[in-house]
């Protein structure tokens, strides 16, 4: 963390591994309807991929992967996707989180629910990934050594 590895091989391996982990994470989110898994597990896997890079390359070097500054707003965005979906349903006259109340042309109610769950899972995935990365970043940030990018600004 504070002593990022300089070894090229480790970097290469971790980058590759991270990619696979993240692909698997996305798969877990999407495929959560049919097999174990879902937003949280997938999100945690996505986060694990990023954390792997963070750990091997150091926090500053790996910023381009997911900048700390946007991690928190993205976590908020994930939660907003979830909560916002519920609010949107209110406008269609359903109860909060009643996906079935949204009239989608050409779709049976269960299918609408299916996609509702999917959207929710994506929101969870996003929120969990960025949330965990944000926690990790806050933890490993050293007190006095620094980079120029420390938490400057949000999405203003």
């Amino acid at each position: 963390m504070t002593n990022p590895s300089q070894s090229l091989i480790i970097k290469m391996v971790s980058r590759t591994l991270a990619t696979f982990i993240q692909v698997f994470g996305i798969y877990v989110i999407i495929h959560g309807h049919y097999s174990p898994g879902g937003g949280f597990q997938g999100g945690a896997l996505l986060a694990a991929g990023i954390l792997l890079i963070r750990m091997t390359e150091g926090r500053e070097e790996s910023q381009p992967t997911l900048a700390t500054a946007i991690a928190t707003p993205l976590a908020s965005l994930g939660a907003v996707i979830f909560a916002g979906l519920g609010v949107v349903i209110l406008f269609f006259g359903g109860n909060y989180m009643d996906y079935g109340a949204v009239p989608v042309p050409g779709m049976e109610v269960p299918v609408v629910r299916y996609y509702g769950i999917l959207i929710v899972e994506v929101g969870i995935g996003l929120a969990v990934m960025t949330g965990l990365v944000s926690i990790f970043d806050d933890m490993v940030r050293t007190n006095r050594q620094s980079g120029p990018d420390m938490g400057r600004g949000g999405m203003s």
Partner: peptide, 22 residues
């Protein structure tokens, strides 16, 4: 229309819990 019951409970029946989790 989802075979994984846990996902349905998580995402639909008890989605408010899940929202809380997020």
């Amino acid at each position: 229309a989802t075979p994984n019951m846990v996902t349905v409970v998580l995402g639909d029946y008890r989605s408010f819990d899940t929202l809380g989790e997020v």
